[in-house]
Write a protein that binds this DNA or RNA. Structure first.
Lengths: 210, 210, 210, 210
DNA sequence: CATTAATCGAGACGGTACGTCATGTCTTCCG
DNA sequence: CGGAAGACATGACGTACCGTCTCGATTAATG
């Protein structure tokens, strides 16, 4: 029986020895991990532009169908990456807005920079903000994903307001925006503060709450 | 067989009646205008996703080579669009930081929103920020483009500093960042203030300079 | 900005009702047939100059990637066309070189002229000869393709040599060249003999074997 | 006054020091020479596929308008190249067809091979034969160009016929074809005989005249 | 001598084909 | 059935050439 092959021979046809197989009629967690791993590595090593669904498939040794089954668009894949990195952070309670905000931003910036050796989330977040602008579905998902973190920020600000550290003039929304605007802006222009500079950053933000 | 093109003689299709021709060995400003016009219309009518180089060529009745000669990438085309919208703005001099900043941001936000009926620059600016992150050349061009506007902001802040309205604690760079962070952040999350809300915005920003 | 493609969700145009889909991870013979069909029609209807890869794609409703996967250049496509026309021809055995050569060339010339209503192969062969001169890969493919037919000619000449109809002075290669030179030359100058003239042609070639 | 330059800077804008200028209202022979020289070099160095009008312009430091003014198509350029090489050859008169044909083909093959250090005409001739098939104008010009040489061949064959060396069965046209077919064929398949092998070649051709 | 006219290099112009690449859908075969 | 593999149609990308055009300069012939 004739086996058709593309004109350019000599390429890899199948090194199927060590491919992951199905584990039956349910999702294979190994595959999920491999895909997210591959996506993370691609972004880190070659930038966001290199994050193509095809490259992810190849690197993760996954099929395209598998990818699209679980992450119907690149946006969902990005979101999954960010979600994966979300680990618990307990509510800081230093007694001052300055201390709480410093703790909060210190943690956030560390994740953006990838301080603990894990993948830096900064580039992803930057991309998500822009993608979300054109993509309502992604926007909603992004909002949902941020809910916990934002709740934390809300609690910090509410406590500070109770202590009189936040001007009554400021609405809850605007207060949150004031807290996030400068970090996000610095992320956007690629000028994230170094690990030790968070306190100085907070000192520059704090007056706007007064 | 790459370059084998049989001789075609006299079968020129060229419905050249109404095409723009060259004006010699130098740039034809009409072509430039037509291209930018086409790009602006495409974005406005069908969104940024419709801004393909090919669509621009077609709409502007321009050749691909022409496009790529003057704008080597889509990002540069965007940048040109933004640049074009930047017409002169004179230095505001209201005597207070509040007044100057309000005038400055009022103008900027109006362009981002497209208040005068022209194309809203906001979405373009948002995309440019993300592109610049991965593209050093574009980053340089973007920086260059912003120079004029930033110089204005610098002058506003310097004057304010002379009047004692800017804390000596703040460096020039950080002061600029504090002025721009919230507007940019609001642009990023799609919450640009309405035309009348600029003053309130400035009031929320101002305390951080004190 | 090369690879920045905004997410497009649900705006697939894809009038996929009547498009050929993949039949799995292997070549779809329908696609191959459609492409060769389209190429043949283009050449016949509009001439060789109209045979652009793009036109073939369009007409065959095939993707560019598909085309280039299987036929890495226009020349290879031509070659496939010629190959396809080469159906089996049994070894003529009339007992004389004259008869065998007449049968052989009659068949060959009929295909070059397209006598059976199919596409004339002559113009394609002519182009292939020239392309092969500049393109080693194509040259090899062309040689490979001709092997069957040449084997036939070899057998004819060997048999004739055994009967003493071919001078021992002539090498095998030169004998083949003498048989093919005049037909090819006539093809090149566009003076292919009419269907009934093959015998006369052979009569003019034959003496050189004596 | 603003000077527009393409976005990619740093390229050669004008090294106009040593450019050829017009010599008034008539053709500049230096330009013609430079163009033909450039074309010849391109074919020799990079093959026929590299013979683009643009490459010729660049290499010859000539303007496109100049090129198209004097050689309205690539075919005309090719033809001019061949014509340029046409030098006088006197009618050989060795008293035998064998001697005359050997002299004739020896000269022809030497030019095809470029034995005297000049540009090999073989590749050009090969291309011209194929181009002429699709291009009547070029075909006519090619015929005209070859007239002298063919006249020579005609004379050789007529003299041989008078001596009884050409079978009356052969028409004048067919006789010429028999003389040229094998050399042309060998040219087409890139198997031109070496300088000393012309006599052997003629010996293989001669019997067909008997 | 001044004007005219044709020539020159240069290269921008509108087009079109090229060959590459990513998308998201599909089908097969294996476990 | 899930998963790897990869072919499929689509279409944008950026490059290269085509043949036409306009420029500004140069220079011979003309007035």
């Amino acid at each position: 029986m004739k086996r058709y092959v593309p004109f350019r021979k000599g390429e890899i046809v199948s090194d199927a020895e060590n491919a992951r197989a199905s584990i039956g009629a349910r999702r294979n967690p190994e595959t999920e991990a491999a895909v997210l791993q591959a996506a993370a590595e691609l972004i880190r090593e070659q930038g966001y532009a290199a994050l193509t669904m095809e490259a992810v498939c190849k690197r993760a040794r996954a099929g395209k169908a598998t990818l699209y089954r679980w992450w119907p668009s690149k946006a969902h894949l990005l979101l999954a990456l960010v979600s994966r990195s979300k680990q618990e952070m307990e509510l800081p309670d230093t007694g001052t807005l300055r201390g709480d905000l410093t703790a909060y931003l210190d943690d956030l910036l560390a994740r953006w920079r990838g301080d603990d050796g894990s993948m830096p989330m900064g580039p992803l977040v930057r991309v998500l903000y822009v993608e979300a602008a054109d993509n309502a579905e992604l926007g909603a998902a992004l909002l949902e994903e941020r809910r916990d973190r934002w709740q934390l920020l809300d609690q910090i600000l509410t406590a500070a307001r109770a202590r009189g550290e936040v001007s009554p003039r400021l609405g809850a929304e605007r207060a949150k925006q004031l807290a996030m605007a400068l970090p996000i802006y610095l992320l956007m222009i690629g000028r994230l503060p170094a690990p030790g500079e968070t306190a100085a950053l907070v000192d520059d933000i704090l007056p706007s709450f007064a």
